[in-house]
Every structure is written in C-alpha cells, then in structure tokens.
C-alpha cells in the first residue's frame, strides 16, 4: 500500500486537510484533489512555467514540488488572485493590453509576475523579461505581456 501523508494547506484563503501520496506533486493536488484547474499542466519537469503558483508568496513551479513538503503552506493560484469581484491589476492589464491569446500560459505568467513584482515593484523592461523567462509563451512573442506587467507595476505602485 502506498503511504498517505496528511497535508494541511491554505489555498486562496481556504483551509484544507488532505491525505496525499508521497510522490504527489502540488500541481496534482491542486488539479485533482481540489479541482482547481487554473494552474496548467505541460512539461511536468519545471521547464515551461504554466503550473506556476505562489507558495508562501514565492513563485514555484508546482509540477516539481512534492505536495507533502507544503504542509502548513499558504498557496495562491490564479483563481485566488482577484480580491472579491475586483480583478488584480495584473489580470486587468493583461486583458487591456491584449497580452492574452490562447491563454494557456497566462495563469503561470500572471502568477510569476505577481511573485516577481513583490520582490521588485518597479522593474525595468529588461528586469521584467528576466523575471518572466521561466515561463514559455508561444502565442504572444512576449511584447504585450511585458507591457502588461509594466502597466500593472505602475498601477500597483500608484496605490
């Protein structure tokens, strides 16, 4: 029998008590146990960033993080980024700047940007590109994504 681990998580402000298998990743827990499909699944080896979420405020590729190691952690996924009815500045900026195409990379991109802007609230274009380079987007060529992050940083800084 596979041993199950008890796992306590706070995901988007909600508390969860789960029993997970030792090898299960945070991405599997989010997508399968909690049916939160905002974090996407692609390479499953930490190379594409579509699965990025915040763990205790830090950007993590959830596909390579063993869930059992997250006991007690605060997780934020793209579903939990808005405050109530109001979208996060990044979500608004991505929409208004036309930075969204197929959208599959967008949850990861937005969460990566959200984590990065915490560390560096007023980044240059160069710094944004560096901050986002772990997340692949095949659709946009990054131009509008970088503009959206710049715009969101300004909006957030002005508050």
């Amino acid at each position: 029998m596979t041993t199950m681990h008890e796992l306590n998580l706070t995901v988007n402000g909600e508390e969860w008590q789960l029993a997970v298998k030792g090898a299960e990743t945070l991405l599997e827990v989010l997508r399968k146990h909690l049916t939160l499909t905002g974090a996407k699944s692609n390479c499953l080896e930490g190379e594409c960033g579509v699965c990025a979420v915040l763990v205790n405020g830090r950007v993590v590729n959830s596909c390579i993080l063993i869930a059992a190691q997250c006991n007690g952690a605060q997780i934020t996924t793209v579903e939990g980024l808005a405050s109530g009815e109001t979208m996060h500045a990044l979500q608004t900026a991505f929409l208004n700047r036309g930075a969204v195409q197929c959208g599959y990379c967008i949850p990861g991109m937005i969460m990566t940007a959200a984590g990065y802007l915490k560390e560096n609230p007023a980044p240059t274009e160069e710094e944004i590109r560096e901050g986002l380079c772990g997340t692949l987007c095949r659709c946009t060529g990054y131009t509008k994504i970088v503009e959206a992050v710049q715009e969101a940083a300004q909006t957030m800084g002005a508050k």
């Binding site: 579903e79 979500q91 929409l95 036309g98 959208g103």
Partner: peptide, 21 residues
Amino acid sequence: KRLNRLDGEGKVTGAAVYASD
C-alpha cells in the same frame, strides 16, 4: 477598434476550461 477579446476574462482568472482540464 482595439477592443478586448470576448474570451479574455476567463483566461486571466483561471475560469476558462481547456481540453486538458
């Protein structure tokens, strides 16, 4: 006109359902 795409909101909030979901 530069209008926002119709399917955009679901894509930035995570509500959009893809085949893999």
